Computed example of a mutant assay.
Amino acid sequence: MLTAFQDREARLQERELALRDRMQALRVADQEIERKMAALTTAEEELRQTLALADTAAEDDLTRLTKVYENMKPKQAAALFEEMDPHFAAGFLARMRPEIAAAVMAGLSPGAAHTFSVVLAGRNANVPSE
């Protein structure tokens, strides 16, 4: 019986050592997961800042180009707009001051003016109203 108890005690000690090893491995794995999560959080914030910078740069470029078109003679701008994709040109017309956009539209061919008007009118057609 003493031998059975000693065997059982030895098995329990082996299991306890195995559990300790397993717990240590879990702690190491948990630390690694925390380290990787921190790195991912940092990378996500850096990406968010980069995207914000890119959005700002793109908006600045559009604003600058819109001002270039606004400062052109309406007939010259109209000639350029005639060559552009209607959605692209309509985007600039929408950003322009209304009196300048009107002068450019007056310089367009009737077909182009109609196309740009349709694009402008339909830009927000699918926006939910409620």
Rank of each mutant, 00 (worst) to 15 (best):
K75R: 10
I33L: 14
Q24R: 13
D60H: 15
E44S: 07
A54Y: 14
A29Y: 04
L19W: 09
A54L: 15
K75A: 07
L53T: 12
M37P: 01
A54T: 14
L53P: 00
L65Q: 14
A113F: 00
A94Y: 01
E82H: 01
D30P: 00
E46D: 10
A39G: 10
V28N: 07
M84H: 03
V104Q: 01
A103D: 11
E70Q: 09
K75D: 06
T41H: 08
T56R: 15
E59S: 12
M1G: 15
E82Q: 05
E16K: 05
E34S: 11
D30N: 09
E9C: 00
Q31S: 13
A57I: 15
E16Q: 06
S117R: 12
A94I: 03
E44F: 04
I100P: 00
M72L: 15
A25H: 05
E45I: 05
Y69T: 06
L2I: 14
F92Q: 02
Q76S: 07
H114F: 10
A38H: 09
Q76R: 04
Q6V: 05
A112C: 04
M84C: 01
A103Q: 11
Q6H: 03
E82C: 00
L40R: 12
V119K: 09
D85Q: 10
R22C: 03
R95G: 02
L62S: 14
A101I: 02
T50V: 10
L51N: 13
A112T: 07
G91T: 09
V127L: 13
G91Q: 06
R11M: 07
E70T: 01
D30F: 05
L120K: 06
A38S: 11
A77H: 01
M37N: 14
L26S: 04
T115M: 12
E34L: 12
H114Y: 10
M1V: 12
M23D: 13
E14A: 11
P98E: 12
A77K: 00
T56S: 13
S109P: 01
E9I: 03
E46K: 13
E83M: 08
M37F: 08
R8M: 02
K36F: 05
L2G: 12
P86M: 00
R22T: 09
G91V: 05
A77I: 02
